[in-house]
Design a protein around this nucleic acid. Structure first.
Lengths: 211, 211
DNA sequence: CCTGGTACCTACTCGCCAGTAAGACTACTG
DNA sequence: CAGTAGTCTTACTGGCGAGTAGGTACCAGG
């Protein structure tokens, strides 16, 4: 909380990282609008003009944070997933990667999920794009694993449901950190994959005949 | 958008409704912080002091909106659900009620889902509480339909996943309004219920043995 | 026609916050 | 040690937006 005067001289790259870490912390706690550049600079242990000198405007800073964290997360997932495997295995490894990342980067997840999607800036586009890629990927996995290809809309919507379930489960997990990542991931995998394969097999649930 | 001077005299109750409709519209588009009382009053077709005279501060106004819409939504679901039926039928009717409401109240859904959860005010509590009730309800349905009661945590997390899937699917639906509510609801029902009952039956998915 | 009450307004204050001007300190380089 | 490039600061401006002071039109009932 820097009460004393001048900060130690550090090379630009290091400062930039510190600033972005601080920014993600503050953004995740307060959201974009409520977060002030003053507070970010304070948490970063630096004065405001440095912020502007290095990272540009508030919007630019936010966008940069989003981009960095989104990239990190996508990489984490991409590293975890095992291509050239059966769809279910791919999905499973992807889920593990996702929950692993979230578990170790709570703040990042907060910013990515709650804050970014809310704002109408250029970041929203960026973020929606990433989520879109995840969606199409999952949708592809789904269609890939069914011979009778249901409509594109159907696959898309199921993918949306799955991704949403993952997000929500991640949020829930934030409040129950005692559960290990693997267990949570397995739970979702079971719920959704069993349901899906069952669906593909033609076992449709239907409401009991109206009385 | 009211360019002329004075608005027609109307009884307080009517004005209050107009104001809240306007507020929900603006909040849903911009979010709590970015929305200004000036804009809300403009959309409502009255001047700012009326706002304060009738609905109090910005936070109070927001909380009131949240409460009203949350109540409407819970009622819509409660009316739709058929108690004293099998768990699956209950879930199904609940889903129909939910998607029906969202389909006819896009803005309300936006505010409830995206905006309210983000802010740290007293409304967040209110909202989280409502979501919590939905969660426990679903969790109860789930445990109710299984003989071998898995851990409480397991039911909770599955409920979280289900609710999240519903929310996300609702968002997806906003972009694909051509699909009828019933179809979307059925899709989710299938995905999640089949998966769940399968899970209960002991059919667990497990990763293929490590090579 | 006055008297009050209720709807409604214009025109402010005041604080917070994004963004900047102008310069001070440090360190390397010749 | 002088020059210059990069780090870092204090101390401002300017605008936006929440909330208010102090009215004006309008409609009762007496």
């Amino acid at each position: 909380m820097r009460t004393e005067g001048r900060a130690k001289r550090l090379p630009r790259a290091v400062r930039e990282r510190q600033i972005m870490d601080a920014a993600i912390d503050v953004f995740s706690r307060l959201g974009f609008h409520a977060a002030s550049m003053d507070e970010i600079s304070e948490v970063a242990g630096i004065s405001k003009p440095m912020l502007y000198a290095y990272l540009g405007s508030k919007e630019e800073l936010f966008a940069t944070c989003i981009r960095r964290e989104a990239t990190r997360m996508m990489e984490a997932i991409a590293n975890a997933v095992e291509p050239d495997q059966d769809p279910d295995v791919q999905l499973w490894s992807g889920l593990r990667g996702f929950f692993g990342f979230v578990g170790e980067n709570r703040s990042s997840w907060q910013v990515l999920h709650r804050q970014a999607s809310t704002q109408g800036g250029p970041f929203a586009a960026e973020l929606a794009d990433m989520r879109g890629r995840a969606l199409t990927l999952v949708a592809a996995l789904l269609t890939q694993s069914t011979k009778a290809p249901a409509t594109k809309l159907e696959a898309e919507s199921l993918a949306a449901a799955l991704v949403g379930a993952g997000e929500s489960l991640a949020d829930w997990w934030l409040d129950h950190p005692e559960e290990p990542a693997g267990v949570v991931a397995a739970r979702l995998m079971n719920l959704v994959w069993m349901g899906f394969s069952n669906l593909v097999a033609g076992n449709v649930w239907h409401p009991p005949s109206r009385r």
